[in-house]
C-alpha cells in the first residue's frame, strides 16, 4: 500500500500524522451523524381492532323484528373505545381520556342521557357480549368507538442541514408532523341488538418540532388529534339526540351485519399480522429500483482500487 520509492520509516511517520487527522475527522463526523441517526422520515399508522375481535357473536335482530322493544329516555349509556393494533397503537389511557370527554358531552343532555359509563380495558381482554355489558354497566345503549390515525413525520432537505450541528438538531423546528384522525361511532340499542345511529368525527393537524423532540411531538399530536376527533364526534352525536325520540326499531341495522362474519374477519386479521407472508407475496410481484447510486459508487471504488494497485 506504499509508494515504491518511500522508505519504510518515512511511510510510518507520514501515516501516523495522517491517521491522527483522519481520526479527528471521523470523530467529528460520528458526532454529527449520531444526531442524524434519529431523523428518518416515517409514517405511522394505527387503527382499532375489527369489531368482530372485541364483540362476541350476536343473535340476529332481523329474525325477531316482531319483538322490537322501544327505546326509552333518559337512557343509560356504556362507551366502548376499541383498542388499537399494530406496532405503535394509541395507548389505552389516551383512549380512556377520549371516552371520558365524550361522556362529559353526553351528560350535558340529561333529557336523553341518564348515566354514562366507560367500559374498562380489562373487560375487553376477551370478547364481550352486549348482554354482559348490560349486566355489568346497567346500560340500555352502547356506543362503540373505533379509530384510524395516520401520522407522517417529514423533514425538508434544508432543515436537515441544520441537524449537522447538535444545536440545530435541538433547537430548529425543521421536522413537520402531520396527524389525521378519524373516529367512527356506532350507537347500539342493546335490547334490540341493533345499530340505531352512526356518527363520525375527524381531525387533521400539523406541527413543527426540532429533530430532538420529534418523537415526543408526534406522541402529543397523536393524543390531541384523538381527543379533538372524539369531541367532533360528540358534537355531531349530541346534535342528533332529538332524532332518537322518533327512533323506529324496524329501521335498525342488525348487529350481525355491522360486525360481519366472525371467522372471515379473524382470518383477515391473522393474515394482516403475518408480515412476512405479505412480504413474500410482494417478492413474487418484483419491481422496485436496483439502487443505481450505490452500484455507481461501488464501480468508482473498484476503479480506484485497481488504479491504486
Amino acid at each position: 500500500m506504499f509508494h515504491k520509492n518511500d522508505t519504510v520509516s518515512e511511510s510510518i511517520i507520514k501515516m501516523n500524522s495522517f491517521n491522527s487527522t483522519v481520526l479527528i475527522f471521523l470523530v467529528a463526523f460520528s458526532m454529527t451523524s449520531l444526531s442524524g441517526c434519529a431523523h428518518n422520515d416515517f409514517i405511522r399508522s394505527s387503527a382499532s381492532l375489527p369489531l368482530a375481535e372485541v364483540i362476541s357473536n350476536v343473535k340476529d335482530s332481523q329474525n325477531i323484528t316482531e319483538k322490537k322493544i322501544p327505546l326509552t329516555f333518559p337512557a343509560s349509556v356504556a362507551i366502548i373505545f376499541v383498542h388499537g393494533t399494530g406496532s405503535q397503537p394509541i395507548p389505552d389511557t389516551t383512549l380512556h381520556l377520549a371516552a371520558d370527554k365524550l361522556k362529559d358531552q353526553l351528560l350535558a343532555n340529561p333529557k336523553f342521557i341518564k348515566s354514562v359509563s366507560v367500559v374498562s380495558r380489562d373487560d375487553l381482554n376477551s370478547k364481550i357480549s352486549f348482554d354482559r355489558i348490560q349486566a355489568l354497566y346497567a346500560a340500555d345503549i352502547v356506543i362503540l368507538l373505533s379509530y384510524q390515525q395516520d401520522q407522517s413525520v417529514q423533514q425538508t432537505g434544508a432543515a436537515g442541514l441544520a441537524d449537522l450541528t447538535i444545536v440545530g438538531a435541538f433547537l430548529i423546528p425543521g421536522v413537520e408532523t402531520k396527524t389525521s384522525t378519524v373516529i367512527d361511532g356506532k350507537v347500539i340499542h342493546i335490547a334490540n341488538n341493533a345499530m340505531i345511529f352512526k356518527a363520525n368525527g375527524s381531525d387533521e393537524r400539523n406541527d413543527n418540532s426540532s429533530s430532538y423532540s420529534r418523537v415526543s411531538t408526534a406522541k402529543e399530536e397523536s393524543k390531541q388529534g384523538l381527543l379533538a376527533a372524539t369531541t367532533d364526534l360528540g358534537n355531531s352525536l349530541t346534535q342528533t339526540l332529538e332524532k332518537f325520540k322518533a327512533y323506529d326499531a324496524s329501521h335498525a341495522v342488525s348487529m350481525s351485519v355491522v360486525i360481519g362474519d366472525n371467522t372471515a374477519s379473524t382470518e383477515k386479521t391473522i393474515m394482516a399480522n403475518d408480515y412476512w407472508s405479505r412480504v413474500d407475496k410482494y417478492k413474487s410481484t418484483g419491481g422496485g429500483s436496483f439502487g443505481f447510486i450505490s452500484i455507481i459508487l461501488v464501480g468508482a471504488l473498484c476503479w480506484a482500487t485497481r488504479r491504486q494497485n
Binding site: V279, Y282, K283, G286, G287, G288, F290, G291
Partner: peptide
C-alpha cells in the same frame, strides 16, 4: 431481504 431486487443489489 424484503424484495428480490433488494437481494440482487
Amino acid at each position: 431481504h424484503i424484495t428480490w431486487s433488494q437481494y440482487v443489489t
